[in-house]
Design a binder for these strands. Structure first.
Lengths: 150, 150
DNA sequence: AAAATTAATGTATAAATATGCAAAATTTCA
DNA sequence: TGAAATTTTGCATATTTATACATTAATTTT
C-alpha cells in the first residue's frame, strides 16, 4: 500500500522537478513523508521503468520511459486506482477526490493520458479538477475515468 | 573522424546486441578496432543521447532515446554522411557503398528512418542493400538518401 | 491466532558511471 | 610549417546505482 503510494509520488516528482539522482529523490520523498533509502528507490525505478535522460540543461534527469507502444502501463493504472476515491461530474468540470497528498500524482497521471478535449487540470492536496469545454464532454470523461477504476 | 565512426559503431552495436554495460561496449568496440576506454564511452553515450532501458529479459540495456518529436537527430545524420560513399540505383535495389566496416552502422541507421516501401535491408562490410518492390520506388529512395548526403 | 510463506526493505558493498585534470591529438591561423 | 588554440582522450577517482544477504513486515494457510 505505502509502496504504490510512494511510487505514485515518485512519478509525480520526476514529472515536476528535474531529479538528478536517487539520493535527491530520497530527500524529496522524505519531504513527502516517505522515509526510504536509496536502495528501495533503485528498485522502484526499475519497476516503474524509469530512466535517466539528458535534460535540456545538459544534466541527467529521471524520466518515464516512452513506452508508447502499449499505451499507459498497467502499473500506472494500478497506482491510479489506489489513489483515487471518486470521480464525479460538475457541469463542465470533472472532480477527482484522492487520498490525502496524492492530488499531484493523480494530476500528472491524468496529464499523461492525453485526454482529448481536456482543457486543463488543477489540483490540491486531495482533489484534482479537470476542465472541459462542455458538460457533455466532461461527463463523458468521468465515465471513461470511472471505467479505469473498475 | 575516428570519433564519429566510433559513435556510429556504437549505434550499430546497441541496435544489434543487448549491451548491458559500458565495459561490455568497450570490448565490442575493441573487436571492431576501436580501442577506447569506458570514460570515453560514457561521454559518447551522453553525446548520442543514449539511455539504459529495461529489456524484455529484465536486464538493463542501452538504447537510443525515443526522441521522436524531431525525427532522426541531426547528429545521426552527420554520422551517416561520414560513413557513406555513394548511393546508387540498380533496378529495384538501392546500393549504398560505405567506408570499410560501416555497412552495419549505416544499415541500422536506414532501418531507423522507416522508409516507406522499403521491403528489407542486407549489409556487408562496406555495402548496404535496400530492397524495394519496384525500380521506380528504389530510384525514388536513392534520390531521398542522396539528398540527406548534401 | 499461530505458523508458514511471501513480499518489502535496510545495510553494506559491489558494480557501474561520470568527471576533474593532465596529456595527447587535432585543427586553426599567421 | 610551426606556434597557439581547441578538441579528444586516458587515468584516477568520486559519484551514483544495483544487489546479495539478513531482517522485518505483510499475507496466506491451517
Amino acid at each position: 500500500m505505502a509502496r504504490s503510494l510512494r511510487q505514485s509520488k515518485i512519478l509525480e516528482l520526476i514529472s515536476v522537478k528535474e531529479i538528478e539522482t536517487q539520493d535527491e529523490l530520497a530527500k524529496e520523498l522524505k519531504n513527502a513523508n516517505f522515509d526510504i533509502t536509496q536502495a528501495t528507490i533503485s528498485r522502484d525505478i526499475k519497476e516503474l521503468g524509469l530512466t535517466k535522460i539528458l535534460s535540456s540543461s545538459g544534466k541527467y534527469k529521471y524520466a518515464i520511459l516512452g513506452n508508447e507502444q502499449q499505451g499507459v502501463s498497467s502499473k500506472y493504472i494500478n497506482i491510479f486506482k489506489e489513489c483515487v476515491i471518486s470521480v464525479k461530474n460538475a457541469l463542465n468540470l470533472a472532480v477527482i477526490k484522492t487520498i490525502k497528498g496524492m492530488g499531484g500524482s493523480v494530476a500528472s497521471f491524468i496529464d499523461k493520458l492525453n485526454l482529448i478535449d481536456l482543457m486543463g487540470t488543477t489540483f490540491g492536496d486531495d482533489t484534482v479538477l479537470l476542465i472541459f469545454p462542455s458538460t457533455a464532454l466532461s461527463s463523458e470523461a468521468v465515465v471513461t475515468l470511472n471505467n479505469i477504476l473498475v
